[in-house]
Protein backbone atom coordinates (compact mmCIF):
# COMPACT_ATOMS: atom_id res chain seq x y z
CA UNK A 1 0.00 0.00 0.00
CA UNK A 2 2.59 2.53 -1.12
CA UNK A 3 0.30 5.25 -2.42
CA UNK A 4 -2.94 6.44 -0.83
CA UNK A 5 -5.28 8.89 -2.55
CA UNK A 6 -7.92 10.85 -0.64
CA UNK A 7 -10.69 12.54 -2.63
CA UNK A 8 -13.65 14.77 -1.65
CA UNK A 9 -14.91 15.43 -5.21
CA UNK A 10 -16.43 18.83 -6.01
CA UNK A 11 -17.54 19.46 -2.43
CA UNK A 12 -15.59 20.22 0.73
CA UNK A 13 -15.02 17.79 3.56
CA UNK A 14 -12.63 19.44 6.01
CA UNK A 15 -13.31 16.87 8.75
CA UNK A 16 -12.00 14.08 6.51
CA UNK A 17 -8.94 16.09 5.45
CA UNK A 18 -8.20 16.93 9.10
CA UNK A 19 -8.69 13.32 10.22
CA UNK A 20 -6.62 11.69 7.47
CA UNK A 21 -3.69 14.12 7.79
CA UNK A 22 -3.63 13.91 11.59
CA UNK A 23 -0.52 12.32 13.15
CA UNK A 24 -2.32 9.13 14.32
CA UNK A 25 -3.80 8.54 10.84
CA UNK A 26 -0.45 9.16 9.14
CA UNK A 27 1.19 6.76 11.61
CA UNK A 28 -1.44 4.12 10.82
CA UNK A 29 -0.91 4.59 7.09
CA UNK A 30 2.87 4.48 7.34
CA UNK A 31 2.76 1.32 9.41
CA UNK A 32 0.92 -0.25 6.46
CA UNK A 33 3.66 0.79 4.07
CA UNK A 34 2.24 4.06 2.78
CA UNK A 35 4.99 6.30 1.32
CA UNK A 36 2.83 8.79 -0.50
CA UNK A 37 -0.41 10.42 0.62
CA UNK A 38 -2.24 12.59 -1.93
CA UNK A 39 -5.16 14.77 -0.82
CA UNK A 40 -7.73 16.21 -3.23
CA UNK A 41 -9.43 18.78 -0.99
CA UNK A 42 -12.00 20.40 -3.34
CA UNK A 43 -13.55 23.57 -1.93
CA UNK A 44 -12.34 22.86 1.59
CA UNK A 45 -11.08 25.62 3.90
CA UNK A 46 -8.44 23.36 5.41
CA UNK A 47 -5.33 23.01 3.27
CA UNK A 48 -2.58 20.96 4.94
CA UNK A 49 1.01 21.93 4.03
CA UNK A 50 2.74 19.52 1.63
CA UNK A 51 5.58 17.48 3.11
CA UNK A 52 8.61 15.80 1.61
CA UNK A 53 10.40 13.39 3.90
CA UNK A 54 12.67 10.58 2.60
CA UNK A 55 10.12 7.83 3.31
CA UNK A 56 6.90 9.82 3.25
CA UNK A 57 5.43 12.53 1.02
CA UNK A 58 2.19 14.47 1.41
CA UNK A 59 0.77 16.17 -1.69
CA UNK A 60 -2.27 18.42 -1.73
CA UNK A 61 -4.38 19.84 -4.58
CA UNK A 62 -7.89 21.23 -4.98
CA UNK A 63 -9.22 20.23 -8.41
CA UNK A 64 -8.01 18.55 -11.58
CA UNK A 65 -9.78 18.03 -14.87
CA UNK A 66 -9.60 14.31 -14.29
CA UNK A 67 -8.67 12.25 -11.26
CA UNK A 68 -8.19 9.13 -13.36
CA UNK A 69 -4.39 9.27 -13.14
CA UNK A 70 -4.42 9.70 -9.34
CA UNK A 71 -6.85 6.80 -9.00
CA UNK A 72 -4.69 4.61 -11.23
CA UNK A 73 -1.60 5.32 -9.18
CA UNK A 74 -3.26 4.66 -5.81
CA UNK A 75 -3.10 1.39 -3.91
CA UNK A 76 -5.91 2.54 -1.64
CA UNK A 77 -8.51 5.26 -2.18
CA UNK A 78 -10.19 7.03 0.71
CA UNK A 79 -13.24 8.91 -0.53
CA UNK A 80 -16.33 10.83 0.47
CA UNK A 81 -19.54 8.93 -0.40
CA UNK A 82 -20.21 10.78 -3.69
CA UNK A 83 -21.42 8.46 -6.44
CA UNK A 84 -18.90 9.69 -9.01
CA UNK A 85 -15.89 9.18 -6.75
CA UNK A 86 -17.09 5.78 -5.54
CA UNK A 87 -17.92 4.46 -8.99
CA UNK A 88 -14.75 5.78 -10.63
CA UNK A 89 -12.64 4.17 -7.93
CA UNK A 90 -14.45 0.84 -8.01
CA UNK A 91 -14.20 0.73 -11.78
CA UNK A 92 -10.47 1.30 -11.55
CA UNK A 93 -10.55 -1.84 -9.42
CA UNK A 94 -8.99 -0.05 -6.45
CA UNK A 95 -9.73 -0.86 -2.81
CA UNK A 96 -12.01 1.86 -1.46
CA UNK A 97 -12.63 3.16 2.03
CA UNK A 98 -15.70 5.43 2.07
CA UNK A 99 -15.85 8.03 4.81
CA UNK A 100 -19.33 9.31 5.63
CA UNK A 101 -19.95 13.05 6.03
CA UNK A 102 -22.46 13.15 8.86
CA UNK A 103 -23.00 16.91 8.50
CA UNK A 104 -24.81 16.82 5.13
CA UNK A 105 -28.48 17.97 5.23
CA UNK A 106 -30.15 14.67 4.41
CA UNK A 107 -27.63 11.95 4.83
CA UNK A 108 -28.71 10.08 1.71
CA UNK A 109 -25.10 9.38 0.78
CA UNK A 110 -25.19 6.76 3.52
CA UNK A 111 -27.61 4.74 1.38
CA UNK A 112 -25.12 4.02 -1.39
CA UNK A 113 -22.18 3.51 0.93
CA UNK A 114 -24.21 1.14 3.11
CA UNK A 115 -25.43 -0.80 0.07
CA UNK A 116 -21.92 -1.06 -1.43
CA UNK A 117 -20.69 -2.10 2.00
CA UNK A 118 -23.53 -4.63 2.36
CA UNK A 119 -22.59 -6.07 -1.04
CA UNK A 120 -18.96 -6.29 0.08
CA UNK A 121 -17.48 -3.79 -2.42
CA UNK A 122 -16.20 -1.11 -0.03
CA UNK A 123 -15.10 -0.53 3.54
CA UNK A 124 -16.79 2.30 5.30
CA UNK A 125 -16.43 4.44 8.39
CA UNK A 126 -16.86 8.00 9.63
CA UNK A 127 -14.25 10.61 10.54
CA UNK A 128 -14.11 9.61 14.19
CA UNK A 129 -13.50 5.93 13.40
CA UNK A 130 -11.04 6.55 10.55
CA UNK A 131 -7.81 5.85 12.46
CA UNK A 132 -9.20 2.67 13.99
CA UNK A 133 -10.39 1.51 10.53
CA UNK A 134 -7.01 2.23 8.95
CA UNK A 135 -5.38 0.08 11.62
CA UNK A 136 -7.76 -2.88 11.49
CA UNK A 137 -9.02 -3.05 7.88
CA UNK A 138 -8.52 -6.12 5.69
CA UNK A 139 -8.57 -5.12 2.02
CA UNK A 140 -8.42 -8.72 0.79
CA UNK A 141 -12.07 -9.25 1.81
CA UNK A 142 -13.37 -6.73 -0.76
CA UNK A 143 -15.33 -8.10 -3.72
CA UNK A 144 -14.85 -6.79 -7.28
CA UNK A 145 -17.57 -4.48 -8.57
CA UNK A 146 -19.19 -5.56 -11.87
CA UNK A 147 -19.63 -2.70 -14.38
CA UNK A 148 -23.04 -1.04 -14.90
CA UNK A 149 -24.93 -1.60 -18.14
CA UNK A 150 -25.66 1.69 -19.93
CA UNK A 151 -26.44 -0.30 -23.09
CA UNK A 152 -29.68 -1.39 -21.39
CA UNK A 153 -30.62 2.25 -21.01
CA UNK A 154 -29.86 2.91 -24.70
CA UNK A 155 -32.10 -0.02 -25.70
CA UNK A 156 -34.89 1.23 -23.46
CA UNK A 157 -34.68 4.75 -24.88
CA UNK A 158 -34.63 3.52 -28.49
CA UNK A 159 -37.77 1.54 -27.72
CA UNK A 160 -39.76 4.34 -26.09
CA UNK A 161 -38.97 6.92 -28.78
CA UNK A 162 -39.65 4.36 -31.51
CA UNK A 163 -36.11 3.95 -32.94
CA UNK A 164 -35.91 0.15 -32.74
Amino acid sequence: MKSVFVTVGTTSFDELIAAVSSPPAVRALRSRGCEQLVLQIGRGALEPAPRRAPAFALDVFRFKESLAEDLRRADLVISHAGAGSCLETLEEGKPLLVVINEKLMDNHQLELAKQLHRDGHVLYCNCSTLVETLQSMDLSTLKPFPPGQPEKFALFLDKVVGFE
Binding site: G9, T10, T11, G82, A83, G84, S85, L87, E88, G148, P150, E151, F153, A154, L157, D158, V161, G162, F163
Partner: peptide
Protein backbone atom coordinates in the same frame (compact mmCIF):
# COMPACT_ATOMS: atom_id res chain seq x y z
CA UNK B 1 -45.60 7.66 -31.11
CA UNK B 2 -42.59 6.97 -33.24
CA UNK B 3 -40.20 9.78 -33.84
CA UNK B 4 -37.91 10.18 -36.79
CA UNK B 5 -34.21 10.46 -36.04
CA UNK B 6 -32.33 12.59 -35.25
CA UNK B 7 -33.77 13.67 -31.91
CA UNK B 8 -32.44 16.73 -30.16
CA UNK B 9 -31.57 15.90 -26.60
CA UNK B 10 -31.40 18.27 -23.66
CA UNK B 11 -29.12 16.93 -20.94
CA UNK B 12 -29.23 18.46 -17.49
CA UNK B 13 -25.82 17.87 -15.96
CA UNK B 14 -25.11 18.48 -12.30
CA UNK B 15 -22.06 18.73 -10.14
CA UNK B 16 -19.63 15.86 -9.68
CA UNK B 17 -21.37 12.49 -9.49
CA UNK B 18 -24.47 13.54 -11.41
CA UNK B 19 -22.40 14.50 -14.45
CA UNK B 20 -20.35 11.31 -14.33
CA UNK B 21 -23.57 9.28 -14.22
CA UNK B 22 -25.32 11.12 -17.01
CA UNK B 23 -22.29 10.81 -19.32
CA UNK B 24 -22.32 7.07 -18.67
CA UNK B 25 -25.98 6.96 -19.68
CA UNK B 26 -25.13 8.85 -22.87
CA UNK B 27 -22.16 6.64 -23.67
CA UNK B 28 -24.19 3.96 -25.46
CA UNK B 29 -26.64 6.22 -27.30
CA UNK B 30 -26.49 6.06 -31.10
Amino acid sequence: GRRAPPLSLLVVAGSGGHTTEILRLLSCLS
